[in-house]
Amino acid sequence: MSKKIKVTLWLLTFFLILVAGYGIFMYQSVKETANQMYEERKPSPSVPVSVATEIKEPIRETVNSEKLEPFTVLVMGVDERENDRGRSDAMILLAVNPEKKSILMFNIPRDTRTTIIGHGTVDKINHAYSFGGVDMTLRTVEDFLQFPINYYIKVNMEGFSRVVDSLGGVAVNNKFQFDYEGYHFAKGDLLLSGAEALAFSRMRYEDPRGDLGRNERQREILKGLIRKSLNISTVFKLQTILDEVGTSVKTDITFEEMKIFMLEYRTKLERIDQAEVKGYGKKMNGIWYYIVDKEEREEISSLITAQMH
């Protein structure tokens, strides 16, 4: 064997070792980040409640991801403060069905008046998080929708901006021009930085549709992030994203499930459909609520059922 061929083979072997080594490093990094993000769903603190406010049997179900079964996930944007658990500033339900090649996405308006399961009160649905954290929020939303939630993803709203920046920004379509928190948002297609995306998602009072308009902008951002995350171009960008996600996101999706979702589910998802929970505003005892009647709740529940079957 000539010296030239030996050198070439040595270089090729060295390169393959580097690639394999980096692959192992990336796998470990992903696994460590996934473990850092993982937060098992824990029961809410015990609060005296009436039997009438409790779900007698949990309606949450497990998902066989290896069979590519559809699943639901509640995405919560949480505005946490020092010495205060905070409230869920945004709640977006995703119903993912690879067989239908689609994701159904809709907001649950945060001022929706409903029974807070496990607390024995009727209040704004976003207060469930401040009363009992993730578990009370999930049980309350499940009761409101009468449909099981398989997973949750909790995103710290301040850390959210870093996640957007790590993805290189997020593309949105803005329906009308407005200024908010020192930023100018022109009408049309925009590429937003993390700080801009946070402001874009929070504007409320200048929107003619109020909370519903803000909900639509939140869905627009999440839709852009989903599309971008499903098309991560390089492992180098992935590592940057993981560094940010690990400190800003908590979820009960395990590492093994994440691998299946990324490798098997994402290639089958082609579109994102959106819906809106219809209701009306009403003041009760000086407090403004969003009222969703029984017929609308049944309609939304039917919509999720149709998406999942």
Score class of each variant (00 low, 15 high):
Lys237Gln: 15
Glu276Thr: 15
Ala52Asn: 03
Arg41Ile: 10
Met105Glu: 09
Asn83Tyr: 13
Tyr205Lys: 13
Val292Tyr: 09
Asp189Cys: 03
Lys250Met: 10
Ser88Arg: 06
Asp273Leu: 13
Arg113Ser: 08
Ser201Gly: 01
Ile125Phe: 07
Leu138Asn: 07
Ser29Leu: 11
Ile241Thr: 00
Arg217Met: 04
Asp79Trp: 15
Arg209Ile: 00
Glu82Val: 14
Ala306Met: 09
Arg41Met: 10
Asp211Leu: 11
Ala95Tyr: 08
Ile260Glu: 13
Lys223Tyr: 02
Leu263Val: 03
Thr267Cys: 10
Pro98Trp: 14
Ala199His: 02
Ser46Met: 10
Lys124His: 14
Tyr265Trp: 06
Leu222Trp: 07
Pro109Leu: 12
Gly213Glu: 00
Met37Thr: 11
Glu298Ile: 14
Glu40Pro: 00
Gly77Ile: 02
Tyr38Lys: 08
Leu18Arg: 00
Val245Tyr: 05
Gly210Leu: 13
Glu57Phe: 08
Gly194Cys: 05
Phe15Asn: 02
Thr267Ser: 15
Arg297Met: 09
Ile291Gly: 14
Glu69Thr: 04
Leu303His: 10
Arg81Glu: 12
Ile125Ser: 07
Lys3Ile: 12
Tyr290Gln: 06
Met26Lys: 01
Glu40Asn: 11
Thr137Lys: 08
Ile272Lys: 00
Lys268Cys: 04
Pro70Ala: 05
Leu138Val: 15
Leu12Asn: 01
Glu61Ser: 14
Thr62Ile: 09
Glu181Arg: 06
Ile24Lys: 04
Phe15Thr: 04
Gln28Ala: 11
Ala90Cys: 05
Ala52Gly: 06
Gln274Gly: 08
Pro109Cys: 06
Met105Lys: 02
Ala197Tyr: 04
Glu298Ser: 13
Lys154Val: 11
Leu167Lys: 01
Arg85His: 05
Pro58Lys: 15
Ile117His: 11
Glu69Gln: 11
Phe147Leu: 08
Tyr265Val: 04
Arg41Tyr: 09
Glu99His: 11
Glu80Ala: 12
Arg113Trp: 07
Phe160Cys: 01
Tyr22Ile: 01
Lys187Ala: 13
Asp79Tyr: 15
Tyr205Leu: 10
Asp207Cys: 11
Tyr280His: 15
Asn35Thr: 03
Met157Gln: 04
Tyr289Val: 05
Asn285Phe: 14
Leu145Ile: 12
Glu82Asp: 14
Lys228Trp: 07
His184Gln: 07
Gln239Phe: 12
Leu225Gly: 00
Asp293Cys: 07
Asp252Ser: 10
Lys250Cys: 04
Ala95Phe: 08
Thr267His: 10
Ile92Val: 09
Arg227Val: 09
Glu244Ser: 00
Val277Glu: 08
Glu142Ile: 05
Arg227Ile: 08
Gly132Thr: 09
Asp189Gln: 12
Leu145Asn: 07
Val163Asn: 06
Trp288Tyr: 15
Lys42Pro: 00
Val134Lys: 02
Arg162Asn: 13
Glu206Tyr: 11
Thr240Met: 04
